[in-house]
Amino acid sequence: MPIEVNGKTFETDEEGYLANINEWEPGVAEVMAKEDELELTDEHWDIINFLREYYEEYQIAPAVRVLTKAVSKKLGKEKGNSKYLYGLFPYGPGKQACRYAGLPKPTGCV
């Protein structure tokens, strides 16, 4: 189901992930979050931007365990733990945060 951001249409797959990750812009995350009844804070953006950088470097969306470790290493232990990440992304930090970041669904996520 496509989403619309500032008059521009973005195609998504059946699970709501962007069909073309290169089309992503911050407004996409805002619209997706609003659909999930979530308001994005700076803390959310820290993780979304981290994921985009991670994907750019490794060409893969990390599964939750890898994400937790990588966030802990880069942003500190207080942010690199499951409780913190699930607090931000209740539908799963891997799946939900990657969707907001315009990335494919992480490997191993159901």
Rank of each mutant, 00 (worst) to 15 (best):
E78A: 13
A63P: 03
K69T: 07
F10G: 04
Y84M: 08
G80I: 01
G76H: 11
E4D: 06
Y100C: 09
G108Q: 11
Y86C: 07
K105Q: 15
T9H: 11
D46N: 12
F50Y: 01
N20C: 07
V31Q: 05
E78S: 14
E37V: 04
I60P: 06
I60A: 15
L38R: 12
A97L: 02
I3S: 06
T12C: 10
V5E: 03
W24T: 10
G94K: 04
Y84I: 13
E30Y: 00
F50K: 01
A70R: 07
E11N: 12
P62F: 05
G87H: 09
E43C: 10
I21S: 15
L103C: 01
K77Y: 10
N49K: 13
A101C: 08
V64D: 14
V64L: 15
K74M: 14
K8R: 10
A63L: 08
Y17F: 14
P26M: 07
E43L: 12
G87Q: 09
W45C: 08
D46V: 05
G27A: 09
T41L: 09
Y17N: 07
S72N: 11
G80E: 05
L75M: 08
Y54D: 00
R99W: 01
C98M: 09
T107S: 15
I48P: 00
C98L: 12
E43S: 14
E23C: 06
G108W: 05
L40C: 04
N22R: 07
R52G: 02
A97D: 00
